[in-house]
Amino acid sequence: MTNCPDTLTSTSAPHEVQLQQTVDVLDGATSVTILCHVQPDADTIGSGLALGIVFARKGVPVQVAFASPDKLPVSMEGLPGTELLVPAAAVAEKADLLVTVDCGSAGRLGSLASRLDGARRSLVIDHHRSNTRYGMLNLIDDSAESTTAVLVKLFDLWGVPIDADLAHCLYAGLVTDTGSFRWAQEGTHTLAERLLSTGIDGAAIARSLLDTHPFGWLPMLGSVLSSAVLARDAVGGRGLVHAVIRCSDWAGLGSEEVESVIDIVRTTVEAEVAAVLKESAPGSWSVSLRSKGSVDVAAVAERLGGGGHRFAAGYTASGADDSVIAALREALG
């Protein structure tokens, strides 16, 4: 089937119209597949499990999955609804409705992107400005702090009460995508208070997701951070700091340990932009970008084939690490 973005609604339709059309589609689903992006974070998993829990409670057959890695990151094992997760190979080829959450493009679904073709209808729920709108219906709110925040609006319109289990999943996405509320916007703390009022332990959730790593993380950090480079003249003299994580550096560690490095590198006061190159295979890189505020790294990532948010984005690249860094410096200007 062809996933035409205008099949169910115009992308220029008022957000309230898109929300109502999304509720109508969800309400009429008879079987549902929910897909999270590869190398999942707490926003995509929290969103997927929260939506999965709602369908399961309604008696609708539902599966939640992601293509890689093979296992859920340890920090997310305590999230409610993990019993709904199925291995990528077990995801049904066909479904009445396929929903992707927090996934900016079909490519971010990895090997499960082919499941879009077997769905009678496809729905994309996201908050990334760079989303390519690859679904039949696309609910994209780039003003939202997280995809879980988009789901709160959706659940409210759908008449879904947010209890402690749903709040746990939704809070997980909110606390991680706001960097523990370091870049919270107006209304973020109000939403957090609403979720916390269900009785969830926000401190424990944040500790599990953001402050829990195996001992092997420490020597990996030592090796990677000691090789970081500060290019003061990059970004028009505002500075770029970059580090490289090779496969040998993170052997035996999970993707969440690798993903955490950028938040340490970005603290460099002399650099407006931080970048971490993560080697997934020889010559293949996943690049994370962060900006302190004056550079739109989403626009930079888009020029290099990726996307994300204004202050946090990423893309994939291939070749030698020095050539990837050179291309990034050129894109940054």
Rank of each mutant, 00 (worst) to 15 (best):
T132K: 13
R133T: 02
L139G: 07
L139N: 10
I140W: 05
S143R: 08
A144M: 04
T147H: 03
T148R: 10
L154F: 08
L157R: 15
I162R: 07
L166G: 05
A167G: 09
H168G: 00
L170D: 12
L170E: 12
Y171F: 15
G173T: 03
T176H: 02
T178P: 06
F181R: 06
A184N: 12
E186K: 07
T190N: 09
L191T: 11
A192R: 11
R194M: 04
L196Y: 01
G202A: 15
G202K: 12
A204N: 02
R207G: 00
R207P: 00
T212V: 04
H213A: 04
H213D: 02
P214R: 08
L221V: 08
L221F: 08
S223I: 06
V224W: 04
L225T: 11
S227V: 01
V229P: 12
R232H: 13
R232T: 15
H242S: 13
A243Q: 04
I245Y: 00
C247L: 03
C247Y: 00
D249F: 01
W250I: 01
W250K: 04
G252E: 15
L253P: 14
L253D: 14
G254K: 10
E259F: 00
V261D: 06
I262A: 05
I262C: 05
D263K: 01
D263T: 04
E272S: 02
A274Y: 00
